[in-house]
Simulated scan of single mutants.
Amino acid sequence: MQENKTVETHIVPPLSIPIRLQEYGVGVFSSVPTKSALKKVLKKKFITVNGAMASTGTYINGGETITLIVPTEITANKKLIFELRVIYEDEHLALIHKPGGILVSGNGFKTIAHALPQNLQPSTLPNTTKPQPVHRLDYATTGVLLTGKTGSAIRKLNQLFEDKKVQKVYYAVTIGEMPPYGKITSPIDDKNAESHFEVVQSVASEKYGTLNLAKLDPKTGRRHQLRKHLASISNPILGDQTYGREGFILKGKGLYLHAYSLEFIHPFTAEKISITDDLPKRFTKIFGML
Results as ranks from 00 to 15, higher is better:
Gly25Thr: 10
Glu198Asn: 04
Ile19His: 06
Leu216Ser: 05
Gly51His: 09
Arg155Cys: 02
Arg222Asn: 08
His114Glu: 14
Thr9Trp: 04
Arg223Asp: 13
Asn235Ile: 01
Lys149Phe: 06
Thr174Phe: 07
Lys45Trp: 03
Ser205Trp: 12
Ser105His: 15
Ile188Gln: 01
Ala172Phe: 04
Asn158Met: 05
Lys43Gln: 07
His258Val: 00
Lys39Pro: 00
Arg227Val: 05
Thr34Tyr: 07
Thr129Arg: 15
Ser31Glu: 15
Ala204Gln: 14
Pro33Ile: 11
Gly106Phe: 12
Ser232Ile: 00
Glu91Ile: 14
Thr6Glu: 11
Leu80Arg: 01
Leu279Pro: 08
Ile175Cys: 02
Leu250Glu: 15
Pro180Val: 07
Pro126Leu: 09
Tyr260Glu: 09
Leu21Val: 13
Phe248Arg: 14
Phe82Asp: 01
Lys45Met: 07
Val28Arg: 12
Val12Ser: 02
Thr174Lys: 07
Gly62Trp: 00
Lys39Asn: 10
Lys39His: 11
Glu194Leu: 14
Pro99His: 02
Glu271Asn: 13
Tyr59Asp: 09
Leu84Ala: 12
Leu68Gln: 02
Pro267Met: 03
Gly254Lys: 08
Asp277Tyr: 03
Ala140Ile: 08
Thr210Trp: 11
Glu177Trp: 14
Gly143Pro: 01
His10Met: 07
Pro122Asp: 05
Glu263Asp: 09
Pro236Val: 03
